[in-house]
Design a protein around this nucleic acid. Sequence first.
DNA 1: TTATAATATTGCAATATTACGATAATAAAC
DNA 2: GTTTATTATCGTAATATTGCAATATTATAA
Lengths: 107, 107
Amino acid sequence: MGITKTEIFDHHQNELAQFFKILGHPARIAILQYISKQNTCICNDLVEEIGLAQATISQHLKELKSIGLLKGEIEGKSICYCIDVDRWNMLQKSLNSFFNTTKTNCC
Amino acid sequence: MGITKTEIFDHHQNELAQFFKILGHPARIAILQYISKQNTCICNDLVEEIGLAQATISQHLKELKSIGLLKGEIEGKSICYCIDVDRWNMLQKSLNSFFNTTKTNCC
DNA sequence: TTATAATATTGCAATATTACGATAATAAAC
DNA sequence: GTTTATTATCGTAATATTGCAATATTATAA
């Protein structure tokens, strides 16, 4: 029927899939890469840098925030969005754990 | 307008996003985990194990194959789908590279 | 060749995602 | 207060994804 049946999977599977899903868009990859290159980051820069409308960028930032990858701090009249390194490392560890425990094969 | 603007991103960003995207569904996570537990894998087992219709499982398998994570070998009248460990390790390396080069922050 | 069993494909309906223009909210500068 | 600049939200249109029933394909068994 078109809706993901999250109820038949466990919490870990759903959470892991959610992490992957949010990283699964080139704009969000590009945003993370750009932020990591800067000392400060203003959404307006991203609009020029990435080439999507301001509203679209704002939505992508919201999604990255939803899994805790970005934290925003008020800085003057704009917002400084930064990567939450603790969360970033946690996520990396979590994905590696999945990769390391899921690679037995048979043929 | 609803379509991802892949043309404004580079090949690496699009490819990385595609990997993440395909891993971004709990059924595909569950399928990979189940396959890695078995010595052999038959799609029919997955239908019972995962709890989705046979057609749906088949589609998820197809997507996992599309990024090379699974390789299927004919085994009697069924198919033995296995994780391609070389590809799996390559993907893990690629994701770690992204994580390691994208975590500078400012605040 | 004709069953039988397993997987793939097709077609369709429902929901989700992506994107953007318009507008609202927020905060500094005047 | 008003203006100006920046980011967030709303509403909407277009495309993508998810899921399943029905059907097709493939390969063994009889």
